[in-house]
Amino acid sequence: MTDVKTLSHDPYNLIITGVGGQGNVLASRVLGNMLSNKGFFVTIGETFGASQRGGSVMSHLRISKDKTCSPQIPRGKAHMVVALEPVETLRVLMEYGNPNVKALCNTRPIHPVGVITGANNYPDTRDLKSWIEELTESAWFIDATDMAVKLGNPIFGNIMMIGALASQNELPIDRKDFEAVILAAMGPEKTKINLMAYDKGMEMAG
């Protein structure tokens, strides 16, 4: 459990990135509500719609003690990148990274259509890891999708990432905050499996 009570930066800028269909939007809402319930001002910027069809999806979370921020983080100003897909980490770091940024990555690739057709290459996982490590202050890698498949559905990967994030003590959030938000959003039935996913995520990153 975390004992962080304050924010390391204000606003704290967090980006959740992934590919359409990975549950990016849900993850940002859950995390946003966990923090909002604690009394923080949370601004989430995201786009969805056409971008969901196989495209990159990105949510910007701005967490502040006292203000609503722009729904777009300025370039180079991210403090944490949570990536549901590894190559998206690179893309985000290019625009929002800086030497002090941290990253938490799901290692399971989703091949863009250009890679499937053979027009483009998808980098080797080891290379990707080393580049991400090079571009961040610290980086954690977990195979959330594989674990989620074992839990019964790859979609739980996003919740695992929230659990993994919580384990890093970067943000003042804990399991109770998560449980409250999930319970309110999904009801008691679905809360159990989501808590399992959250715990698995904490365990994997811890």
């Binding site: 495209g55 250009g114 483009n120």
Partner: peptide
């Protein structure tokens, strides 16, 4: 460096 790495190694994600 970040631009270089992403440009060379992050394949574009066209809509499909």
């Amino acid at each position: 460096r970040a631009g270089e790495l992403a440009f060379l190694n992050a394949p574009v994600r066209d809509l499909t």
